[in-house]
Design a binder for these strands. Structure first.
Length: 247
RNA sequence: CCUCCGGCGAAGCGCGACU
């Protein structure tokens, strides 16, 4: 059964929802994990009603089931439905709480998010990141920085969220933050790249691109659109042809 | 019997498509 679910999840991640559904239908014995994977497949590919229908028909549910549907509501900004679902979860674990917080954050409801965060039975690094980036993204930098100072621990994800708080404004700040990070991953590098592009210094951006330990598809797209937008079509074309993979 | 790992759920990046 595990092997089937791996395949199902693979179809889901590549957006082949039809194949995933077919696989789910012909699976010989479907355990709860397979059901969950199918719900997630629907939810992630925008088939919310199918996800809910499956959810209603499920023989049993666990944390993963509830959280998957909760997240689907959150990502589509259906806050009321998310709240109602959250209240129905019998024994919420920390992930359920974080998912509900993420829903408030996604909707930009900062007041409710803060209130909810304060009520959480425990706070994980995920919930700290969610409450921080919600404020950063929705324009409350002052509170975001206060949250940053209170964070009990930080990791690559929190640092990237911090970088992105300044990508659309202060490229000097991004550079300084980037240099002060304890470690850097591809997403941090992409933030530096995006910020340099934003500053308008294309040569510096190209330099960052070349200095990256490796480039992801996002890095290629970033530099490519920067070149195209500044009418450097020849260079853009060269970059495009140099891309290892295109989608 | 226990511990760890393993197939599904929560936090950070570009463009486009969808709503």
């Amino acid at each position: 059964s595990a092997t089937w679910t791996v395949m199902l999840a693979a179809y889901s991640q590549s957006g082949h929802i039809k194949q995933a559904k077919k696989l789910f239908e012909v699976m010989p014995c479907k355990d709860i994990i397979a059901w969950n994977a199918m719900i997630t497949a629907y939810a992630r590919n925008g088939h919310l009603t199918d996800a809910i229908e499956l959810f209603d028909r499920m023989p049993q549910r666990n944390y993963v089931t509830w959280t998957a549907v909760l997240t689907a509501f959150g990502q589509s900004d259906r806050l009321l439905q998310a709240q109602r679902l959250f209240d129905q979860i019998p024994d919420k674990d920390l992930v359920c709480w974080s998912a509900m917080l993420a829903a408030y954050a996604h909707a930009g409801d900062l007041d409710q998010a803060r209130e909810f965060f304060g009520r959480m039975p425990a706070r994980s690094i995920q919930s700290w990141t969610a409450i921080f980036s919600a404020h950063a993204r929705h324009g409350d930098l002052r509170r975001a920085m206060a949250i940053w100072d209170e964070m009990p621990e930080r990791n690559l994800v929190t640092w990237s969220a911090m970088l992105h708080a300044f990508v659309h404004g202060d490229s000097a700040a991004v550079k300084e933050l980037f240099d002060s990070m304890p470690a850097r991953d591809i997403i941090a590098w992409n933030a530096l790249l995006a910020s340099t592009v934003q500053s308008g210094d294309l040569d510096a951006a190209k330099d960052v691109f070349d200095r990256m330990p490796q480039q992801s598809l996002a890095s290629w797209t970033e530099i490519l659109t920067a070149l195209a937008r500044s009418d450097n079509f020849d260079e853009a074309k060269m970059i495009y042809q140099a891309m290892p993979e295109r989608d």
